[in-house]
Amino acid sequence: MLRLPQLQVARPRTVEEALALLGGEGALPFAGGTDLLPNLKHRLLAPQTLVSLAGVEGLSGVSVDPGGALVIGATTRLHEVAEHPEVRARAPALAMAAGLVASPQIRRMGTLGGNVLLDTRCRYVNQSAFWRKSLGHCLKKDGAVCHVVPGGQKCVAAASNDTAPALLTLGASLTVATAAGTREVPLESLWKPDGVYNRRLAPNELVTAIRVPAQAAGHRGAYLKLRPRESFDFPLLGVAVRVDAAGGVVQSADVVVVALQAVPRRVTGASDELAGKALGTQELEAAIVAVGARAHQQCRPLPNVPGDPDYRREMVPVFVRRALRAAAG
């Protein structure tokens, strides 16, 4: 049985109190804890204090601002995101992605902010401390070698958050509270290709909300996920798509994949293939197949997460096509 390390739990009531606590040595924010606690058991992190966000005012809930943007509090639970009528209507890909995270219990504990900020995952990292030590450690934790890419100097642990690609197709941003005030961080600039720590956020900054702007007329979206079992597992591949089809004709489209590398990855050229095609036509179907082919060419999964990388690569066009058909259908 793996034990949790000794910890203190601080329970601030306001964002200001939380920020002050997070500025202290060895402090980590704690929301759902569904990924953090297993990582603590594996001794991947060694905080002295967990700063619980459960009692902080104003961090949870879904609202729509006057401009039609969804504003989702960072600690809103994934179950609520998946089931919320405004999220389902305005951002269907996000609702689907939130509903495909882990299991019913985990979705009632885990939060949207936590999934957006999920740590990267690798078959050589998400293991017990004993297991990792036996292998000689690696770039992400305590070591200097990569077991995924022999000779590799850069950690390629995989971004494994289901909601990340969906939010990227939706042009979402994060509202981040800092000691100096609040700033808005577009998700496009959040991630960096470094599996050790792939987010451009400082430890003393706190994501308070996720903002999804109003989408174009005729917005459609979908998220599909490849995983070993139809529950609990992290993605071996996740595909989010956006298809804007005002008047029944595609105006613009976007495809973003996750779980291949340290950052979510946009498949380029989706709009070039799909724009101008009418829904329900053979031309659109041919364009969907062409986007799948582009995705296959652009995506090269690494053996960083479980699942044979060749199989995962062959599944890229399959899931891209299925997701586009689901959105356009």
């Binding site: 804890g33 569904t34 009632r108 504990m109 609990f232």
Partner: peptide
């Protein structure tokens, strides 16, 4: 002890959650 098996499921404020991952 990892949130995967659900043997520790209890209801907290009516929500089914894993007691093994709940401080």
């Amino acid at each position: 002890g990892n949130g995967e098996c659900g043997a520790c499921t209890v209801l907290v404020a009516g929500r089914p959650v894993c007691a093994c991952l709940t401080p």
